[in-house]
Amino acid sequence: MTLSEKKRLQIIASAEALFASSGLEATSMDQIAAHAGVSKRTVYNHFATKTELFAAILEAMFSKVDQGPLITYDAARPVDQQLTDIARQEVAMLASPAFLQVARVAFLQLLKDAALAQAINKPSMGCLRYLEPFLKEAVADKALDITDSELAAKQFVFQLKSLIFYPLLYSLSDDMSQHEYFIEETVKLFMARYRPLA
């Protein structure tokens, strides 16, 4: 690792600590430079704005989130069992401390800063990396009857988010005892909508 790369990581770590304690707006680039033990010019050489720096922090945090392996459709297994596996993997990510930390750090700032939202407009995370192709393969195998795989994938994930992720994000509930029940009900609802007619 070069000296420049080490300084970049120092800046990101210092900014993350300061943003977490004081917020983005209340933290100056001077404070970040002092905390990181580098010059203000060095900070600006790596990050032209605080928005760029904040985006880099979120990227670093996202990289620590365990998204689980890609799951491919298996014609030899019942599709509802496979969807249950996918839902469990998604819930493990959504309820993980690493993912919740990213969401809590980012949420309010993203509402205020459209440029930041564009800067970290990530490719799909979690099961959305592979769920649409999975569903298309299940349709081709006549295990599901779906005309809009993109919408169906979002319906599946957003149901889990509404029942599990958002209550955790907003500290409305920290009860994880019902997660398996929510997973089972989400799969049942999905299958009721997309099971092929006999």
Rank of each mutant, 00 (worst) to 15 (best):
V65C: 05
V65W: 02
D66M: 06
Q67L: 12
Q67R: 09
Q67V: 12
P69L: 07
P69H: 13
L70W: 07
L70R: 09
L70Q: 07
T72R: 07
Y73E: 04
Y73H: 14
D74Y: 08
A75H: 15
A76K: 10
R77P: 07
P78T: 07
D80F: 09
D80P: 06
D80W: 12
Q82S: 02
Q82T: 06
L83E: 05
L83A: 07
L83W: 05
T84W: 08
T84A: 14
T84S: 13
A87I: 02
A87C: 10
R88V: 05
R88H: 11
Q89V: 04
V91D: 00
A92I: 00
M93H: 11
L94H: 03
L94N: 03
A95W: 11
S96D: 01
S96N: 01
P97S: 04
A98I: 00
A98W: 00
A98F: 00
F99L: 04
L100V: 05
L100H: 02
Q101W: 05
Q101V: 10
V102L: 03
V102F: 03
V102P: 00
A103F: 08
A103L: 10
R104K: 11
R104C: 03
V105A: 15
A106W: 04
F107K: 13
L108N: 15
Q109H: 14
Q109R: 06
Q109T: 09
Q109E: 13
Q109D: 15
L110A: 15
K112L: 14
D113Y: 02
D113A: 13
D113M: 04
A115Q: 15
L116E: 00
A117P: 05
Q118S: 11
Q118W: 15
Q118R: 13
A119D: 10
A119H: 14
I120L: 05
I120P: 01
N121Q: 11
N121W: 12
K122F: 12
K122E: 08
P123N: 07
S124E: 14
S124K: 12
M125I: 11
G126M: 01
C127V: 10
R129M: 01
R129I: 01
Y130T: 04
Y130Q: 02
Y130H: 03
L131A: 08
L131R: 02
L131N: 02
E132C: 13
E132F: 04
E132G: 08
E132V: 14
P133Q: 06
P133V: 13
F134D: 01
L135S: 06
L135E: 06
K136V: 05
K136Q: 10
K136M: 08
K136S: 09
K136N: 08
E137W: 08
A138I: 01
A138S: 08
A138L: 01
V139F: 15
V139W: 12
V139H: 13
V139E: 12
A140K: 08
D141F: 09
K142C: 09
K142H: 15
A143R: 02
A143M: 06
A143K: 02
A143F: 04
D145Q: 14
I146E: 06
T147D: 14
T147A: 15
T147R: 13
T147K: 14
S149K: 05
S149V: 07
E150I: 11
L151K: 11
L151E: 07
L151M: 11
L151I: 10
A152M: 10
A152W: 00
A152Q: 06
A153R: 03
A153L: 08
K154M: 10
